[in-house]
């Protein structure tokens, strides 16, 4: 009988854990969306041979390669903070990385993808993009991706994503083409 009670407690604990994990994911992102600061990031063309596509548009950021002093130690999968700067046109980009939480300025927490040294005594760190996809309705996604690539390749400056950032966490909000959300853009182009 006692055993049964202990098991029931464990059972309820498991159920709570199963609920808390997704709930935490939601609350965390909602906080970012509600209280975060909005940035616009320009995007780049995507590799058209991505295998798992269909339900989202792959979004590629430029400027993911950072040059760092040679004596700073970086390694793959290391947690780092990417510093955000806003250019004259109002777009955000990453301009540096830090291994500790930056004291001032906005930043997004991400990971080191890989590190490579160059002969000239420079060291480069490739960082992982903190956002890389935009989910859409499955019929719309492939068409959206075609439009995305077309506009980006034509060097259309008007393709960007809006991202909310709060204390190092980033949530991708929307993908824009010509000042319209991609959903609206496709709808208006159809009609």
């Amino acid at each position: 009988m006692k055993n049964k009670k202990i098991f029931l407690v464990l059972f309820i604990a498991l159920m709570l854990a199963q609920l808390i994990v997704p709930a935490y994911m939601i609350v965390h992102r909602e906080l970012v969306l509600h209280n975060g600061k909005q940035y616009k990031f320009r995007v780049q063309p995507v590799d058209p041979y991505h295998p798992l596509r269909g339900r989202y548009v792959s979004v590629h950021l430029g400027d993911l390669q950072m040059t760092v002093p040679k004596d700073e130690k970086y390694y793959g999968n290391q947690a780092i903070y990417a510093l955000i700067t806003i250019d004259d046109m109002g777009y955000a980009r990453f301009t540096g990385i830090s291994r500790t939480v930056p004291e001032n300025g906005e930043y997004i927490k991400t990971k080191v993808a890989y590190v490579y040294d160059e002969n000239g005594g420079q060291k480069h760190v490739q960082i992982e993009a903190p956002f890389d996809r935009y989910y859409m309705e499955e019929k719309m996604a492939p068409q959206a991706e075609r439009e995305y690539n077309k506009h980006v390749r034509d060097r259309n400056d008007n393709v960007y994503v809006t991202v909310k950032v709060l204390s190092g966490s980033a949530v991708l909000e929307r993908l824009y083409i010509e000042g319209m959300t991609i959903e609206d853009y496709i709808k208006s182009n159809k009609g």
């Binding site: 199963q18 994990v21 997704p22 994911m25 992102r29 992982e128 993009a129 903190p130 989910y135 909000e173």
Partner: peptide
Amino acid sequence: AAISLIGQTYNLPGDFDGFMLLWMLL
């Protein structure tokens, strides 16, 4: 399903390893 649907709603980057591990342990 719950975890991946939330990932989809918030456009989370594809951290397949982390997702699998979390799913299996839960």
